[in-house]
Each structure stands twice: as structure tokens, then as C-alpha cells.
């Protein structure tokens, strides 16, 4: 145990995800040895993020105003919505530069074993967005795991009667991997989703 504020700092850092007591101690001593200006910059960033960042009223993504940068961008296609579980997924898709539509962040996936049902996600907000008839395609980009697939099934069943084109991201073999290490489910999906080579 250290004295006073040093121990307080270690305890606070230790509450962060993935930071154990040893890591917390290492970060605390790094901060003690760091330049005061660097520490002040970190403190400023922490305070700013809590003060300024909120969730977009339209899509649920992290934003610095009422709406996020993507929802405010007039160049984005309003007819296509890509549904993701978390804001982190928006960043991952944006990095591809393949998608020019808008997003909807659910805030998780349906997981009955964790007590998370459809009412705990932003599904009602999605239905409200789809009600005006502007959106023509819904891309379901939930995680390719069991909860993500079940959430996609639930949403597809809910949205298809609205006359929308409902699509799901393809799943199959990762680029750069070896075929022999692919599990049966992934390999099966890759066969289902095989495409014609147009050469």
C-alpha cells in the first residue's frame, strides 16, 4: 500500500477495464515521472470527453452535438441504413470506405442468458427511423457470432414486412488465412456464399 493520493490513483486506474493492480501501479508511476504538461493534457482530454461526448439522437453513435458527424453529412445516402452493435463497429466499417449510407447503433445484441432482450436495445428507435419510408435497404452488420446472428434474424423478421430490402454482411473465410484451420460453420458459410468468378 502506498500513501494517500498515489494509492487513490492506483485504485482509480485499477477500476478501468483490462487494468490489473500491477498495471495500475505501473501507469501511476509513469504519470508521476511524466512531464506535468503531458499529465495536464491527459486530464483535459478526460474532462472534455465526459463533458462534450454524448450519443447521437438519430443513430446512437458517439457524437459531440445533438447529432453525429455522419448523420449531419448531406452527402451520405439516406436510403441505406447499416445496423451495428456498438460505436466501435461504425469506426471499423468507416475504415473500409466502402459504405456511404448511414448507421444505426443498437447498443448490444440480444442475449437472453445475460438478460438482454429486444426491449433493451435501440430497436424501437430503428423502427421509428424506418417508418417514414425514405429508407429502402437495411444492412444487418451485427457481429458474426451467435448473439449477432440471432439479433439479425429478429430484425429481419421485424423489418421484412415493411417492404425493405434486408441484407446481411457476408461471412466466410478471412483473407490471409489457411483453409485447413477454418471451422466447419465458417467453411459452410463460405460455401453457401460462394460467388461466380467473372474473369
Amino acid at each position: 500500500m502506498y500513501e494517500g493520493v498515489v494509492q487513490d490513483l492506483i485504485d482509480e486506474l485499477g477500476r478501468l477495464p483490462g487494468v490489473g493492480p500491477k498495471s495500475a501501479q505501473r501507469i501511476a508511476f509513469h504519470l508521476l515521472a511524466a512531464d506535468p504538461a503531458d499529465v495536464r493534457r491527459l486530464v483535459h482530454a478526460l474532462v472534455e470527453v465526459k463533458d462534450k461526448v454524448r450519443f447521437c439522437a438519430t443513430c446512437g453513435n458517439v457524437a459531440e452535438s445533438e447529432q453525429c458527424r455522419i448523420c449531419l453529412d448531406p452527402r451520405r445516402d439516406v436510403a441505406v441504413i447499416c445496423v451495428v452493435e456498438e460505436s466501435k463497429d461504425v469506426v471499423a466499417i468507416e475504415k473500409t470506405r466502402e459504405f456511404r449510407g448511414r448507421y444505426h447503433v443498437l447498443g448490444g445484441a440480444i442475449s437472453p442468458i445475460e438478460g438482454v432482450g429486444p426491449d433493451d436495445l435501440r430497436i424501437r428507435e430503428l423502427m421509428t427511423r424506418l417508418a417514414d419510408g425514405v429508407v429502402t435497404e437495411l444492412i444487418l452488420a451485427t457481429d458474426p457470432n451467435l448473439e449477432g446472428e440471432a439479433t439479425a434474424t429478429y430484425l429481419a423478421r421485424l423489418c421484412k414486412p415493411m417492404g425493405l430490402r434486408v441484407t446481411r454482411l457476408a461471412s466466410g473465410l478471412p483473407v490471409g488465412g489457411d483453409l485447413e484451420y477454418a471451422d466447419e460453420v465458417t467453411l459452410g458459410r463460405a460455401f453457401e456464399g460462394r460467388r461466380l468468378l467473372d474473369v
Binding site: N145, L146, P174, G176, G177, Y181, A182, D183, V185, T186
Partner: peptide, 10 residues
Amino acid sequence: KSKFGARVEP
């Protein structure tokens, strides 16, 4: 790229 893939899903 995990070698487990869907093998250890519920």
C-alpha cells in the same frame, strides 16, 4: 482469424 472460429460458440 482465430483457429476456434464458431467451435466454441454456445
